[in-house]
Write a protein that binds this DNA or RNA. Structure first.
Lengths: 205, 205
DNA sequence: GTATAATATTATACATAGTTCAATAATAGA
DNA sequence: TCTATTATTGAACTATGTATAATATTATAC
C-alpha cells in the first residue's frame, strides 16, 4: 500500500517505457499506413504487447494521438510561454499562438483532425477535466492570465468561461482550415477570430 | 432516369414512412432501455427491417438521434422565430432561446449529450455542411439576422464566424450543465455566456 | 399489361473497436 | 523467501459498421 517512490519505482519506469514505445510504434504505423488503416491489433503486435495491455495503456485509439500531441506541446510550451511574455498585448499573443498551432495542423492535418474531435468529445462528455488537460490548455491559461494581469481582459466572468472561449477560437481557426484547406487564409482568419474574441459580436457604438 | 415526382413518388413516400418508423421505434427503445443499451440490431428487429436497411437510412446510430431532434426543432422553429421578433434586442432573444433549449436538455440529458457530441464531430469532420443543418441553425441564423438588421450586431466579419460563435454559446451553456448538473444555475450561466458573446473578452475602458 | 432499367431490401459474412475475465507473471515491501 | 498488489496475457465475446450478391420493388417506356 505505502508507496516507496524512490524517484519512481521500477514499475513506474517500465510503464513509462512501455507508454513511450507504444506511442512511437503507433505514430510510425500511422505515418506508414494512415491512421484509419492502422488497427489496434497491429499496434499491439508491432509493440510486442497483448491487445489487452495496449487497451490498458490507451483506452481508445485516439488517446494515443492525444498523448503524442500533448507531449509534443509540452516540450515546447515553456519556450512558447516565454515568447508570449515578450509580446505587448493579448492580441499579438493570440496571433502568435494560433499561427504556431496552424503550422502544426497544416503539417499533420489528419492527426490533428482526429485529435480535435477527440478533445471536443471529452470536453462535453467528461464531467471532471483535471487529468485530461489538452496540450493547449496551459498556453491558453497563460494568455488569459497575462491579459487579466494587465487589465486588458475582463475578470468579471468565470475563468472557465473565458478559457472555453479561447479554446473555441483555437478550434474555430482549425475548423476554417479543414472546411477549405486550399482557400484557407491563415492570417485573415486568425485576425477575424481574435477580433471577435476580444470585442464580441455587438457593434461598437 | 427522369424523375416523375408527382408530389413525391411512391418510393419517396415509402422511404419517408420507413424513416419515421425507424425514428419512432428507436426512440421508444432508447426510452425503455437507454441509448447505449439499445443496439442497432434491436432497432432493426423492432422496426422489422434488415440491419443493412437500417444502416442505409442512418449510417451511424447517432444519426437517428440527430434526425429526431432536428425534427422536433423544426416543428417548433416557426413559433420560436415568431416569438423572437417580438423581443426588443439580441440579448433577450438569446436568453429566451437558451432557456428554451436548456429545458429540453434537462429533460433528456443523455439524448442531447450524444446529439451535441455528434453535431460537433460533424462540424469538424465534414467539409461541406449544406445538408447537415442542425435543428438549431435556423434559430441561430434568425438571431444573427435580426441583430444585424437593427445594427446591434456587427456586420464586418464573415457570417459563418458569428454563426459559429452563437453555436459555441449554445454548446457552452449545455456543457456547463453537463459539467455539474446539480449546481447548474441556468439563468446565471446563460447571462454570462450572452454577455461574453456580445461584449467579448476585452475589458471595457 | 409486360419488358426493362434503376433502386431498395435482405441475408450473410466480415473487420475492427473495445470489454471481460481467469490464469499467469512481475514487482513491492516485509 | 514469502505475500499482497499490480500488470500482462490470451481468449472469448459484443457491438458498430461495411461489403456483397441475390432478391424484391418501383419507375418508365412500350
Amino acid at each position: 500500500m505505502e508507496h516507496h517512490d524512490p524517484a519512481a519505482s521500477r514499475m513506474e519506469r517500465k510503464k513509462e517505457e512501455n507508454r513511450q514505445k507504444i506511442i512511437a510504434t503507433a505514430m510510425g504505423l500511422f505515418g506508414q499506413h494512415g491512421y484509419d488503416a492502422t488497427t489496434m491489433e497491429q499496434i499491439a503486435a508491432a509493440a510486442d504487447i497483448a491487445k489487452g495491455t495496449l487497451y490498458n495503456y490507451f483506452p481508445v485509439k485516439e488517446a494515443i494521438l492525444d498523448a503524442f500531441i500533448k507531449q509534443s506541446f509540452k516540450e515546447r510550451n515553456a519556450e512558447r510561454i516565454a515568447r508570449m511574455h515578450a509580446l505587448p498585448d493579448t492580441r499579438s499573443r493570440m496571433i502568435q499562438m494560433l499561427t504556431d498551432l496552424m503550422a502544426g495542423v497544416a503539417n499533420q492535418p489528419v492527426i490533428f483532425e482526429k485529435y480535435f474531435i477527440y478533445r471536443i468529445q471529452n470536453m462535453i462528455a467528461l464531467r471532471q477535466d483535471e487529468s485530461t488537460h489538452s496540450g493547449l490548455i496551459s498556453l491558453e491559461q497563460a494568455i488569459l492570465e497575462l491579459g487579466q494581469q494587465s487589465g486588458e481582459l475582463r475578470a468579471d466572468l468565470p475563468q472557465a468561461l473565458l478559457l472555453a472561449l479561447i479554446e473555441f477560437v483555437f478550434i474555430e481557426v482549425a475548423q476554417q482550415y479543414y472546411r477549405a484547406p486550399e482557400t484557407f487564409k491563415a492570417s485573415q482568419t486568425i485576425e477575424d477570430c481574435v477580433d471577435l474574441f476580444m470585442n464580441g459580436a455587438a457593434s461598437r457604438s
